[in-house]
């Protein structure tokens, strides 16, 4: 057999083989697409949880459980069972969440229950980039997916586990760190390894800087005052009136104590 004949024969076999591989791939494709969609949804929920943690926990609580007097619970049965009918939303719950998160709320729909009746700035800020907020559309969609994922718990409250606390309960610094997350400080202040937010000053090394502020008894006094009365000293480059002024109403004395100790541990390297 000449080389040319061998090549004709092999080439034919290879082309048939390629077609077979392609047909097998095509036959498996609907399954792959379906699986990809499920995995994509899972990753969207994970991503949404991360976005939620950075942006939403200061008002809606660390685990979307809501903060009384401030913002509603987002994993409770009420949102899933009756909220759409209450506001007369004709579409799906996920779209409703996307819409509310994107545009925000200028006026509270439940002023008696939550923030919005002469108590501080508008209820819910606009989050979409399109309306001057910080989030992209895909991030907002992901947050909605994360919240809708709570449906299973909302319908069977008995399966909800008690949350674990990520702390050494004997260590006030570690407890303070949790408070930093729970009270939403994380949403505006960067700390290496916790948050990269830029709305407020970064707090790495805040304890060292606190020593140098004049007019305060101690570094501790400076930090405590800055939390409870943020207008008294505004770090250069940041605007006055951005940080909420109601922490004295929200935070317990014990939490505040721990939070201050945690911030005091952030010395400059």
């Amino acid at each position: 057999m000449k080389r040319i004949h061998l090549e004709i024969a092999l080439g034919t076999i290879f082309i048939i083989l390629s077609s077979v591989v392609l047909i097998v791939m095509a036959a498996e494709e609907p399954g792959r697409l379906a699986r990809f969609e499920v995995e994509q949804r899972a990753e969207q929920i994970e991503f949404g949880a991360a976005v939620f943690e950075i942006n939403c926990t200061s008002c809606h609580g660390s685990h979307a459980q809501g903060i009384p007097g401030k913002a509603p619970c987002l994993r409770c049965p009420e949102l899933f069972a009756s909220r759409l009918a209450e506001v007369g939303w004709p579409g799906s719950l996920e779209d409703y969440i996307v819409s509310v998160v994107s545009t925000g709320r200028q006026v509270s729909t439940r002023p008696a229950l939550y923030q919005g009746e002469g108590k501080g700035p508008p209820v819910m800020p606009t989050w979409s980039e399109r309306f001057g907020g910080p989030l992209r559309d895909d991030q907002i969609r992901a947050v909605a997916a994360f919240i809708v994922n709570f449906q299973g718990w909302a319908e069977n409250p008995e399966v909800v586990p008690t949350p674990l606390v990520a702390v050494d309960i004997n260590d006030p610094v570690s407890l303070g760190r949790v408070a930093f997350v729970q009270y939403g400080c994380i949403g505006c202040h960067a700390i290496d390894g916790l948050s990269q937010a830029t709305t407020g000053p970064a707090l790495d090394g805040v304890a060292t800087r606190a020593e140098t502020r004049t007019g305060y008894e101690s570094a501790e006094d400076y930090i405590r005052t800055s939390i409870l009365n943020p207008g008294e000293f505004v770090v250069e480059g940041f605007g006055d009136g951005i940080m909420p002024t109601n922490f004295s109403e929200l935070i317990s004395e014990a939490d505040l104590e721990n939070l201050v100790l945690f911030l005091l541990s952030l010395t400059e390297p």
């Binding site: 899972a42 990753e43 929920i45 610094v173 390894g193 916790l194 390297p269």
Partner: peptide
């Protein structure tokens, strides 16, 4: 991870967290 910085003696924290969904690949 919490440790004491060998040079300054300050308490250091490095923490990361991950969300993992059941259906993830």
């Amino acid at each position: 991870v919490i440790w004491t910085d060998p040079e300054t003696g300050a308490t250091k924290i490095y923490a990361k967290h991950y969300f993992l969904h059941e259906d993830r690949s």
